[in-house]
Design a protein around this nucleic acid. Structure first.
Lengths: 216, 216, 216, 216
DNA sequence: GATGAATGAGAGTTCATTCAT
DNA sequence: AATGAATGAACTCTCATTCAT
């Protein structure tokens, strides 16, 4: 899994080259990330963010175009954090048997769950606070789902290619379904952090095992 | 699947008995439903809804307490519409063989997909526009997920009881995972309505079949 | 004290002859009187008054021109209630000695205090809720003060004529000063109803006795 | 009369330290003071005040919490202005004879009348425009009356202590009665500014002299 | 570069008043 | 005569954004 999740329209949002890379610019993103996750985008005022940082709120506009702009950066940041974890994972072609392939899949699933549990704001930002802002951001989010689906699909394709998975597998739709399970787990984890182990196991059974009773 | 999805705090939101049942009250809900789904809750002004209905915007307040109140009604309405479809389905104990059980599951999945495709605003309201409003509504939404998970779990439990599914199945987590797949399909359907057939099939394979290659 | 307090511009306000004399018209005035005294004019909605009476709030407009109109009637009513008490009092020419004159004055003062204590809404309406509405009503209220001052002045004049009071007494200003004391007592009575006896006694001492130490 | 009239909950109302002391903050108070005195609190919109100052109405909210807040400040300001005049007066223990005590009292009375005549808005704000707003402000106003009564009572007590006034004088009620006379004079002065001299004289006669005819 | 005072568009909400039924 | 649904003027308050210092 070497390919990091793409953040499509980054170029456009990074209107001011200064905003990223600057220490203050990053601090603003971090604070906005936290405030948005806690109070929500609409309930957070630019002045709130500035006050928490001890800066004048006019300063904000030296680093970001407008309020909407910072949300783009927060989302990018969130995606990047998740992406980093995935990038660390080994590529699927490491596995040589179905068993290894499944074990690797489980590791990836558990790694994802770990970061979602470690920082619940990640899922909050993506699933609750970035939605319903405007058409553009909604498209970006669904684009993100597409990217994630593509990644998963490539992973499945690799499994097919290597003979672990059925040759006629509808990898695209299966990929979306699997990602849906992961998201459901992440959202549920917001309210029930204790499911750490049981949920990934159930998913693994669904995917690789069978939920059907032993026939005969 | 006789039990309809519960709409928890309906009693409280229905402060004005008139709002439902009145023709105009229902028209307001319908228009708000549409506006919220299109522009989003925050981007829709009460005056917008009123204008579309050709009524004075003060009239709105004869039917609903405030802007937040109408959102509650819109959500209730949405849940009800989905709930109605599920209620129409046969109970799981109709199935006498695993095959029948799977076929029934497929039918339910396809029925859900149909209503989501028929009115894409349903999923928009639930997944995009009702999120990030306030803590209370967020809790209501996660509560809805819980209710849905419980329904699915009961369905799985019935499968276990009747011997179709493995006795040691973690029905609770499996239920959440399955629901996650359904949601993912619904969201994807917003942008790719052509997946009608392929997605449910992929899910069915994941759940009942095996994605693994024929061992041997 | 036979002359009742005049209510100057009654003619104009009594636009609809029906409003007074009708049973419902009077009930509306009574309820408005109570609501205004409790919540204040601006905090009371026409609908509140109607609801308390169990009538449609459109009905209100069959009896009164507008919201401002009912306030005029409430004030008239209030003035009338006070006026009635004063009218019952004997005329000043009943007294034949200074002593009797003072006793009669004390009786009047105590009678006033009694009605103010019996129905604290009277003073509330006049002093707190009718003020600051508009120029016209303010003028009516100050006109009321003038009328009251005239009454008191006539009472004092009678005392002068009969030789009880100093011939060079500035009866007009003295009358205003005395009325000021009465009002102060009434207002204080709102918060300290226990002063019933002591306050009129102090006023009597101020007027008829001397607060100076016995000279010599 | 060294003790200035207390302004009870000033601390609480001065939530924004900036509102007082700032030039604009004071200009807003001054303009609000004038508008409230002229049109009344309810008939004055924040936009009216802003327009008269040539500022945006949003600016208002940089200096005051809300509309109610500015009224508190206006009242405080009014009380302060009156208080300042009283504070300048000599303490009652300056008098060594009843005659001097009376002369000093007359001076104080006349000083009060002067400020009320000089700026009639003071009495308008206190007696007409601050009443009937809400329970809290009403309590503040009656509290002000209490404070004023206490001041006058202390003044009388000093007269008693020094032997000028009767030892058995009910100084508390007498104090309220005297203040009532002053208020009556102030209110009357709104419509009849020509009474400057005659009213205080009449009050002085009532208090220190006797209105009774020379007995014998 | 940083600041924060100033701004005003814009939204939600109330309620006196009208009028068709 | 009575009603109460409908209306919209009017007002308070918020906050993203600008810009002079």
């Amino acid at each position: 899994m070497a390919t990091p999740i793409q953040t499509p329209n980054r170029a456009r949002t990074q209107t001011r080259a200064s905003s990223r890379g600057t220490e203050l610019g990053e601090a603003i993103v971090a604070t906005a990330f936290d405030e948005f996750a806690q109070r929500g985008y609409h309930n957070t005022a630019i002045a709130d963010i500035a006050r928490r940082l001890g800066i004048g709120h006019g300063t904000f506009y030296r680093y970001f175009e407008n309020k909407r702009d910072i949300l783009d950066h927060v989302v990018s940041d969130t995606v990047e954090k998740i992406s980093e974890v995935l990038t660390e994972q080994e590529a699927p072609d490491q596995a040589t048997t179905l068993e290894e392939y499944r074990e690797q899949s489980d590791r990836i699933g558990r790694a994802l769950q770990e970061i979602f549990l470690a920082d619940q704001r990640l899922i909050r930002i993506l699933m609750f606070e970035s939605t319903g802002i405007d058409r553009e951001l909604t498209e970006r989010l669904t684009g993100l789902l597409d990217t994630a689906a593509t990644l998963t699909m490539e992973y499945l394709d690799s499994g097919v290619d290597r003979g672990f998975l059925r040759a006629d597998l509808d990898t695209e739709n299966t990929a979306r379904a699997i990602n849906g399970m992961i998201l459901a787990g992440a959202i549920h984890g917001l309210n029930a952090p204790e499911i750490v182990d049981s949920f990934p196991a159930a998913v693994s059974t669904l995917i690789f095992g069978s939920i059907a009773a032993e026939s005969r």
